[in-house]
Protein backbone atom coordinates (compact mmCIF):
# COMPACT_ATOMS: atom_id res chain seq x y z
CA UNK A 1 0.00 0.00 0.00
CA UNK A 2 2.71 2.43 1.02
CA UNK A 3 4.61 1.46 -2.12
CA UNK A 4 1.65 2.39 -4.30
CA UNK A 5 1.26 5.78 -2.62
CA UNK A 6 4.95 6.73 -2.94
CA UNK A 7 4.98 5.42 -6.51
CA UNK A 8 2.01 7.60 -7.42
CA UNK A 9 3.60 10.62 -5.74
CA UNK A 10 6.85 10.06 -7.64
CA UNK A 11 5.01 9.61 -10.94
CA UNK A 12 2.93 12.77 -10.48
CA UNK A 13 5.90 14.91 -9.50
CA UNK A 14 8.04 13.57 -12.36
CA UNK A 15 5.33 14.24 -14.94
CA UNK A 16 4.86 17.76 -13.56
CA UNK A 17 8.59 18.30 -13.84
CA UNK A 18 8.60 17.19 -17.48
CA UNK A 19 5.79 19.68 -18.21
CA UNK A 20 7.84 22.49 -16.61
CA UNK A 21 10.89 21.49 -18.66
CA UNK A 22 8.76 21.46 -21.80
CA UNK A 23 7.50 24.95 -20.94
CA UNK A 24 11.10 26.12 -20.61
CA UNK A 25 12.00 24.68 -24.01
CA UNK A 26 8.95 26.12 -25.77
CA UNK A 27 9.74 29.49 -24.24
CA UNK A 28 13.33 29.23 -25.38
CA UNK A 29 12.23 28.58 -28.94
CA UNK A 30 9.26 30.97 -29.18
CA UNK A 31 10.19 34.12 -27.27
CA UNK A 32 11.58 36.96 -29.36
CA UNK A 33 14.81 38.00 -27.63
CA UNK A 34 17.55 37.08 -25.21
CA UNK A 35 16.12 38.83 -22.15
CA UNK A 36 12.68 37.25 -22.52
CA UNK A 37 14.28 33.85 -23.02
CA UNK A 38 15.90 34.21 -19.61
CA UNK A 39 12.47 34.00 -17.94
CA UNK A 40 11.57 30.41 -18.88
CA UNK A 41 15.14 29.27 -18.21
CA UNK A 42 15.45 30.70 -14.72
CA UNK A 43 11.94 29.63 -13.72
CA UNK A 44 10.65 26.66 -15.71
CA UNK A 45 13.93 24.82 -15.63
CA UNK A 46 14.57 25.25 -11.93
CA UNK A 47 11.11 24.22 -10.82
CA UNK A 48 11.12 21.33 -13.30
CA UNK A 49 14.36 19.93 -11.91
CA UNK A 50 13.20 20.59 -8.34
CA UNK A 51 9.92 18.72 -8.73
CA UNK A 52 11.55 15.72 -10.42
CA UNK A 53 14.23 15.49 -7.72
CA UNK A 54 11.55 15.82 -5.01
CA UNK A 55 9.71 12.93 -6.63
CA UNK A 56 12.92 10.88 -6.58
CA UNK A 57 13.32 11.70 -2.87
CA UNK A 58 10.06 9.80 -2.22
CA UNK A 59 11.53 6.90 -4.16
CA UNK A 60 14.77 6.71 -2.20
CA UNK A 61 13.27 6.79 1.29
CA UNK A 62 15.08 8.30 4.27
CA UNK A 63 18.85 7.80 4.02
CA UNK A 64 22.04 9.79 3.23
CA UNK A 65 21.17 9.63 -0.48
CA UNK A 66 18.08 11.77 0.16
CA UNK A 67 20.27 14.31 1.92
CA UNK A 68 22.43 14.57 -1.19
CA UNK A 69 19.32 15.04 -3.33
CA UNK A 70 18.23 17.88 -1.03
CA UNK A 71 21.70 19.42 -1.27
CA UNK A 72 21.35 19.39 -5.07
CA UNK A 73 17.88 21.02 -4.86
CA UNK A 74 19.15 23.77 -2.56
CA UNK A 75 22.10 24.45 -4.83
CA UNK A 76 19.91 24.53 -7.95
CA UNK A 77 17.52 27.04 -6.37
CA UNK A 78 20.45 29.26 -5.37
CA UNK A 79 22.45 28.97 -8.56
CA UNK A 80 19.90 29.19 -11.36
CA UNK A 81 18.76 32.69 -10.43
CA UNK A 82 22.39 33.75 -10.27
CA UNK A 83 23.08 32.13 -13.67
CA UNK A 84 20.18 34.03 -15.23
CA UNK A 85 21.45 37.24 -13.68
CA UNK A 86 24.98 36.62 -14.98
CA UNK A 87 23.81 35.97 -18.55
CA UNK A 88 21.44 38.95 -18.53
CA UNK A 89 24.15 41.21 -17.16
CA UNK A 90 26.66 40.12 -19.78
CA UNK A 91 24.19 41.21 -22.47
CA UNK A 92 23.08 44.39 -20.68
CA UNK A 93 26.63 45.64 -20.09
CA UNK A 94 27.34 45.09 -23.80
CA UNK A 95 24.22 47.19 -24.55
CA UNK A 96 22.20 44.54 -26.34
CA UNK A 97 18.87 46.22 -26.92
CA UNK A 98 15.73 44.45 -25.64
CA UNK A 99 13.02 43.52 -28.12
CA UNK A 100 9.83 45.58 -27.83
CA UNK A 101 6.35 45.08 -29.16
CA UNK A 102 6.07 46.90 -32.52
CA UNK A 103 3.55 49.36 -31.04
CA UNK A 104 5.79 50.34 -28.13
CA UNK A 105 9.07 50.55 -30.05
CA UNK A 106 10.25 54.08 -30.84
CA UNK A 107 10.37 54.80 -34.56
CA UNK A 108 13.91 54.95 -35.84
CA UNK A 109 14.53 56.64 -39.15
CA UNK A 110 16.92 54.72 -41.32
CA UNK A 111 19.33 56.82 -43.29
CA UNK A 112 21.59 55.69 -46.02
CA UNK A 113 25.24 55.21 -45.12
CA UNK A 114 24.77 55.70 -41.38
CA UNK A 115 25.17 52.80 -39.06
CA UNK A 116 22.82 52.83 -36.14
CA UNK A 117 24.61 52.43 -32.80
CA UNK A 118 22.80 50.61 -30.05
CA UNK A 119 21.23 53.10 -27.74
CA UNK A 120 21.35 52.68 -23.99
CA UNK A 121 18.55 50.46 -22.81
Amino acid sequence: MADVVTGLLTATLCLMGVVFFLGGTVGLLRLPDLYSRLHPVTKGDTLGATTIILGLCFQSGFNPDTLKLFAIIAFLLLSSATCGHAIGRSAFVRKVRPWQTPAAAPRVEKREGESRGLEEA
Partner: peptide, 24 residues
Protein backbone atom coordinates in the same frame (compact mmCIF):
# COMPACT_ATOMS: atom_id res chain seq x y z
CA UNK B 1 6.36 33.09 -5.54
CA UNK B 2 8.37 30.53 -7.55
CA UNK B 3 5.27 28.40 -8.17
CA UNK B 4 3.25 31.49 -9.17
CA UNK B 5 6.06 32.61 -11.48
CA UNK B 6 6.14 29.26 -13.23
CA UNK B 7 2.39 29.19 -13.73
CA UNK B 8 2.54 32.69 -15.19
CA UNK B 9 5.41 31.92 -17.57
CA UNK B 10 3.82 28.63 -18.70
CA UNK B 11 0.52 30.40 -19.43
CA UNK B 12 2.22 33.10 -21.47
CA UNK B 13 4.51 30.74 -23.36
CA UNK B 14 1.83 28.25 -24.37
CA UNK B 15 -0.78 30.88 -25.31
CA UNK B 16 -0.96 31.10 -29.13
CA UNK B 17 -0.79 34.91 -29.18
CA UNK B 18 1.96 35.20 -26.53
CA UNK B 19 0.69 38.18 -24.50
CA UNK B 20 4.03 39.82 -23.72
CA UNK B 21 5.38 43.36 -23.97
CA UNK B 22 8.94 43.18 -22.62
CA UNK B 23 10.65 46.21 -21.17
CA UNK B 24 13.60 47.07 -18.94
Amino acid sequence: EIVKANWDVLKRVFAPTMPISPRI
